[in-house]
Design a protein around this nucleic acid. Sequence first.
RNA 1: AGGCCCGUAGCUCAGCUGGUUAGAGCACACGCUUGAUAAGCGUGGGGUCGACAGUUCGAAUCUGUCCGGGCCUACCA
Length: 990
Amino acid sequence: MADEPKGAPQGRDYRETLFLPDTPFPMKAGLAQREPERLNYWAEIGLYARLREAARKRPKAVFHDGPPYANGPIHIGHAENKILKDLVVRTRQMAGFDCDYVPGWDCHGLPIEWKVEEDFRKAGRKKSEVPAVEFRRACREYADKWIPLQREEFKRLGIEGDWDNYYTTMSFEAEAAIAAEFLRVVRTGLVYRGSKPVMWSPVERTSLAEAEVEYQEKTSPTIWVKFPIKAVRSALNQGHGVTRGLEYADASVVIWTTTPWTIPGNRAISFSPSIQYGVYEVESIEQGLAFEPWVKPGDKLALADKLAEDVMRTAKAASWKRVSDFDGEGVVCAHPFSGKGYDFDVPLLAGDHVTDDAGTGFVHTAPGHGADDFVIWTKHFGQEGIPFTVDEEGRFTKEAPGFEGLEILQLDGKNIGKDGPANKAVMDALIEAGALLARGQLKHSYPHSWRSKAPLIFRNTPQWFIAVDKPYAVGGGRTLRQVALAEIDRVDWGQKRTGDQTGYNRIKGMIEDRPDWLVSRQRAWGVPLPIFVSKADGSILQDDDVDARIVAAMKAGGADAWWATDAQEFLGAKHKAADYEKVEDILDVWFDSGSTHAFVVGNPEAPTRESFRNPVTTIYLEGSDQHRGWFHSSLLESCATRGRAPYDEVVTHGFTMDEEGKKMSKSIGNVIEPQAIAKNNGIEILRLLIAGAEYGDDLRLGKTMLDQSTEMYRKLRNTLRYLLGSLKGFEESERVDVKSMPLLERWLMHRLWELDRTVRDAYTTYQFRAALSAIVEFCNVDLSAFYVDVRKDALYCDAPSSERRRACRTALDEVFSRLTAWLAPILPFTAEETWLTRFPDDVSVHLRLFPETPAAWEDDFAGEEVARLREARSVVTGALEVARREKLIGAALEARPRVWVADESLRASLQAIDFAELCITSGIDIEAGEGPADAFRLPEVAGVAVKVEKAPGIKCARSWKYFDPATALPGFPDITPRDAQAVMEWDAAR
RNA sequence: AGGCCCGUAGCUCAGCUGGUUAGAGCACACGCUUGAUAAGCGUGGGGUCGACAGUUCGAAUCUGUCCGGGCCUACCA
């Protein structure tokens, strides 16, 4: 070629003189293979440390990781959670904050305890035979085994953070800190000992969690019991002047139950205000029975109207009459065993749990033996007056006079788990007292232990609580509930940044309704309640020196120190171990995670941590289930100890469902593993999908969405690739000032300016979807389908010196700068690949900030002008499409349209620029007027009509534009003058 | 069973305080290009706005009921 003369003869191949996109950046990403390589690169350059260093002087945005449970491989829910967190952290960091991410793990709790127990059992050892310290060590080892595995899986998701210095709730430091936090709550005076019925297995002598319970068929006795009415209080006392209730003076309220042994524990009867009741008098009993029924003519019984007939028939009454209405309000009964140690009032209490589906419409209420019973009792009387009638082996205690020592279940022998003597003894006593109306048997579903298969009972046990309705000093004399509610108003749950009230309503409702916090558990794997209780008066020992010794011991030896150390050592010289009960319970694991703020991030109000120099905001992000979980416990813990929520902003996400919106489950087989996505698609496909989802709702994940996300990825990748190719060799000297740019470039810069605001706003309010869709739409609609399409000619064919081409490349450089930054949080791998392809000497795209966009780029005129031009253009492209269908043309460059424009100002706009260039045609004629009737028009664009004609002249061998050969420059007969200019420049540069 | 929430084209989503023929991107079909080419451009089909009832001159947008789905409901992390 070099030998050929300048101004080559016809037939010269001009292809090499073009500036076609050129880049080593491959179209095919190979994500699955390259992502791990990129992770290695970041590890090599120490990206995390560099990020911290770069942000050292910036204002802090504190992101606190809610610790996942250290158990099992991660699933898609973890992936969504961690990826969203990563998006928050990366966008905050690039927006100019110092946003650190310290991942953590939650380690204590039942799942691990169960697993370890099972392992011991497989090895032939029962939990009760394993020393506590050995058992706990095994739990620790179990968690320790999973943490590194999960950590590697999380890292594979592209989560940037301090993976070498993660926190756990089981480190000695954490265990000591959690214990210290509890002691701090104790000092507020909010901790008290109360009681609560729990699922209890007498056979195993242990309480059970709901998940350890299974329901089986069981045949139980059923009894109908009369409670004689003693008094009617409310009406008389409230002075309505109505002597209501005289008609029920000699009546009895009838209850029905399947657990006769709970009768000694009865303290109330529940009724429903929305059920109709009446007093019924027995007139006659059935004759000819083999036995004498307990019911007698003249008996007056209060019953739900709907159930009265059933009860009467069961009791073998032959006829009866309704004497009066019955209103339970204020009614007080006597206990059937009154006179035998049960001489208390049995009040009637209104409760929503009462139905008239079965029984009598009145519910026997033994607050120590049922969840509903407990709730309604404590609602009226608090923790007072709840008896402990049954011990841990299911035997009546002395609080059940007359039955002491009798067992509910047989505890050993052949009939272990079968009914013991308790039920029969109670029924006999009821008969003797004349209180039994009828009895029978019922087969029903009843809770059993999933281990021993033995029946369970509800049993009242002493427990530790944190009071939510008691004023305390840290709360400034308010109650914990009041402080928490005030903090809920202060915190942004989304209601402030997006107007979405969901999270706010949810947490508020929960705090408004919740009872006292039950913090004690009769378990092994956790942090103890490190307290001593005075045997003399039941008070908790509060001594700073003792507390300090406890915390110090735990720092040195972990929570085990509580059990391993002699009580006297903690108590020191001032107190005698014999005077105190050392509490052996462990803390609710929610207290653990509720305390993480204290030892992971601290907060400005934390007395134990140095305040951050320049705190901005503390962010929590978790699934919406954490309104009941971590958000909740952290709020209460922090409000109790510091009078303040530990966070300022809370972000929540929904759950990951399958394609149909159904829960993913192994048994259905609709589970998608993040590991599989990483391996098959590349994790960025998932990251892109999550960034584009409305994460507050549930996320549907299936093949369709992954395909769609892949497609979106390809589009973005190709856009980046094209930018790289077009910017090859771009130098600062080529840069053009915005003011001297052509309209099209001024418009593009204006779009960048607009996008900058959209993206920043979206990122600061964590609306990743809004940012991403704005970016994608820009890439598709503005860049690819319009700007680049139009500018290809200039980009490929103009001489390097061309002002137009320089302006174009300047604008594209700014596009590149922003797209790589804006996409970096979402596509960290691809953004890095793109950035380093262009700037191989730079370290990482992730060390950048979102580029500032000069205010001078705002150009409303260009924005509106180009919008009008594009409208007019759409009529031309529409017309070209028709011409194509009619085979008049193929490529648009084969056309030279005639355009009639009625509006003078629009016509002026079209004439002010090269409209042919915009339409990618070889020339265009713009004329005034409405145009001929057969011209092409679009209904939505008034006053523009187009007729397509074939472009005259010859086809330029270089730019493929049709032109008049008479205008060709000497020596270049087959190309346009513009191309001739470019070729001469190209030739000269060789 | 209760509390909170979701339900707009095949998919992901816009549609503000109710107001003309309900929009975008992707997917799909067809066409163009072959100098972003396992790419790019254009055109087109596709929605009883979960169902029903109500308020209103007028509802995807307000109210109620129902259906489907999700999370939570105190020893579950």
